[in-house]
Design a protein around this nucleic acid. Structure first.
Length: 116
DNA sequence: AGCCTGACTTTGT
DNA sequence: GACAAAGCCAGGC
């Protein structure tokens, strides 16, 4: 991520924006964000964008972004592998065996919630 | 310019 | 039901 798009905004920024829009106590999946951004065919890019989010400010609540199964696949990319779970628990989100409990209930779909 | 990698998702065996 | 492979796009070297 050396250079953004010519318009000064990369799809990374969109990802960050969406992630920051995630309501507290809610989680979403890479695919959901990807779909909202239009890059639904590449959920990887969302995760890839999150990789760069470490240097992005304001802080991006990447801990609210999990995979389609509600699994905390990206926890290893945080400062500490337990940080993600800790943060989620603070959001009243229960985490069991690296997975979000009642994930489907906590799931927040940007393409759905933001389109209401 | 070309090849590799990556925090996903879906589908097929 | 579990495992494997492919598709996707953008960034890094």
């Amino acid at each position: 991520m050396k250079k953004a798009s010519t318009d000064g905004t990369s799809f990374f920024d969109d990802v960050y924006a969406v992630v920051r829009m995630i309501p507290k106590g809610r989680v979403t999946s890479y695919g959901a964000i990807a779909q909202y951004l239009g890059t639904k065919l590449s959920a990887r890019m969302v995760g890839w964008a999150m990789n760069a989010a470490h240097n992005v400010h304001p802080t991006v609540p990447a801990h609210r972004v999990v995979n389609r199964n509600g699994m905390l696949t990206g926890k290893h990319h945080f400062a500490t592998p337990t940080l993600m779970e800790e943060l989620l628990r603070k959001e009243k989100i229960e985490v069991k065996d690296e997975k979000v409990v009642n994930f489907q209930e906590k799931f927040w779909d940007p393409s759905r919630e933001l389109s209401l």
